[in-house]
Nucleic acid binder design. Sequence first.
DNA 1: ATGTCTCTCTACCATTTGGTAGAGAAGCGC
DNA 2: GCGCTTCTCTACCAAATGGTAGAGAGACAT
Lengths: 207, 207
Amino acid sequence: MPESPVPTDVRSRILQEALHLFAARGYDGVPIEEIARAAGVTRPTLVYHFGSKAELREKVLEALLGRWRDELPALLQAATTGSDRFRSTFDALAGFFCADPARARLLLREMLDRPDEMAALFRLHLQPWTELVIDYVRRGQEEGRIRAALDPEAYAVQILNAMIVTAGNGHRTSEILRDPPDEARQLAELRRIARTRLFNDRPPEGG
Amino acid sequence: MPESPVPTDVRSRILQEALHLFAARGYDGVPIEEIARAAGVTRPTLVYHFGSKAELREKVLEALLGRWRDELPALLQAATTGSDRFRSTFDALAGFFCADPARARLLLREMLDRPDEMAALFRLHLQPWTELVIDYVRRGQEEGRIRAALDPEAYAVQILNAMIVTAGNGHRTSEILRDPPDEARQLAELRRIARTRLFNDRPPEGG
DNA sequence: ATGTCTCTCTACCATTTGGTAGAGAAGCGC
DNA sequence: GCGCTTCTCTACCAAATGGTAGAGAGACAT
């Protein structure tokens, strides 16, 4: 169970508890009183620091996207040095969300609750990186390494979506089945799905 | 915009409005007063018919899963008669959710809000069908038509998840990009992703 | 010591919300 | 007509919730 250490700073503690509670039960499902209690303070202290529940929501989201934005470059750069660039990139991205499933769950919830604002935030923080990936795919297509019939934008959205859902809901969503695959199996298959669709011809299959 | 016709029956009207409002803003985000108003009655009338907000939630979910369960057999059977069984099955399943995106969104929300109860309901209503699909994949693997390295359970969960997310959030979630693909493009690419991963060797690519 | 700034608390308030009580209307068998 | 059931309403209530007021404690510079 990947749990972050408890920060000493009050604001950080509130942000962290809010992230986990909002992710678990949704913005409307969690009274700020409960967030404050989890952070070891009272409600007025919370609103003193954040002004209102709505502003707390913004700050939680901003912190999450900010961390993503700050870690993405390092992740993607590290992904260029390994022997299997596809795998490195995939695992780095998946690792970010699996490090704390609450991140993925909060993103899912916010995309459902406020799709427009979320789209704007995504564009603001992440557009350069998504375009970088898409350009990379396009180049691969010109060079013949990547399937020509692949739709780069749709492919990227699909794989990213699948990753977020799996990271956020992985161990739960699969319990439809008699022998439900665990998160690791799901991520491994997702990686194979993504890889098989991506590259033009790959001798049998690895991981 | 796929909109269902307004039922004359009060209970059905309430159920339909509840489905759409819960899907749009979540169970905790919608007062039953608003649902009642949308259905053209007052709050006490709603609770007269459904007992409580929680029971209304159950009935909405039950109606959704029930309809799915009732339509699935016909869909899957129709899928066995076409020339391209994979495409028929995929499109039939996608069509069910795209007919009203609120269905997919409600499922997503409920999986986030109450994963355990949802897993139980899924098992109850849908397990036979999922197992049928998985057995079909296993047989295909034995016959060599389907990739041996494919994890049937994980594959099924991944594709189903992706379909639900795309149907529920398709036109929104992709707005990260400068040139966002519409839902049709996303579903088409998802179908190619699923097909490419599934079959062992398929001359170039179709749809 | 004194004033100021930061932070936290207790006590309070207004609104929203789910649910209930009880009355009234409409249909129906008799 | 009369009683019974079904359905809907207005009026009301109690609890939960977001937010405010104002006091007090501590740090710190002067």
